[in-house]
């Protein structure tokens, strides 16, 4: 995974709360068996409205999504993260994220950073006033900067470290294979085991 340190790009304000993963990418777009190619599904229903904020030419090429509270509840589909990445997003800012989305974002290398709702609203106003100005999202300093404005953000310290280093979770865990084996030897014999697959 590519390390994430400081990202500079244009932002797009999405003034909605409770943006669930069925909105981020509807189920009919989940049939691919690759990790890419999901950009066309991103906000597919809302994009049919020519006035939808992501359709406005002024926001073309934006890479920072500034969303309302409770972003990403619902289905566990990681396709939501893949769709955002495929469409060029590297950062989502919200005052609150659903748990599974946060895990998926971290695994996919998408930064999901939490700001206060008041700061999200300030940023919405700033971006709407000057949509072409660049916004800096600094994971080293845990700070978002836009012109003279700035705000600190919260992120799980372990997730931050993994993103900064670009580390793969599975590699990290497999360093503890011995501990996993030790644990396995303590498991009770009656715990369920699936019968071998029929040949």
């Amino acid at each position: 995974m590519q390390p994430f340190t400081i990202h500079t790009g244009r932002a797009v304000p999405l003034r909605r709360a409770n943006i669930d993963t069925d909105q981020i990418i509807p189920a009919s777009y989940l049939k691919r068996i690759t990790r890419t190619g999901f950009a066309d599904g991103l906000f597919a229903a809302w994009r049919q409205d020519p006035d939808f904020v992501l359709n406005r030419p002024v926001h073309a090429g934006a890479s920072i999504l500034v969303a309302g509270p409770n972003f990403g509840p619902g289905s566990s589909r990681q396709h939501a993260v893949w769709a955002l990445l495929d469409a060029g997003f590297r950062v989502v800012l919200s005052s609150r994220f659903a748990d599974i989305f946060l895990g998926n974002a971290a695994s996919g290398g998408l930064l999901a950073a939490q700001l206060d709702q008041a700061e999200i609203e300030q940023l919405w106003d700033l971006v709407e006033g000057a949509p072409r100005d660049e916004v800096v999202v600094d994971l080293v300093a845990c700070q978002v900067r836009a012109g003279g404005w700035h705000a600190g953000f919260e992120i799980d310290p372990y997730t931050r470290w993994r993103l900064l280093e670009g580390l793969d979770d599975i590699d990290l865990t497999l360093q503890h294979s011995e501990a996993i084996g030790d644990y396995e030897r303590t498991r009770a014999g009656w715990l369920p085991r699936v019968a071998a697959k029929p040949d």
Binding site: Q78, I100, S107, G108, T173, H176
Partner: peptide, 20 residues
């Protein structure tokens, strides 16, 4: 609990998950 695809891969490979 529900997990995403990267975590599915993680559990397949290591039968464990890092979780807060």
């Amino acid at each position: 609990f529900g997990i995403g695809t990267s975590e599915v891969e993680h559990v397949l490979a290591a039968q464990t998950l890092p979780v807060r």
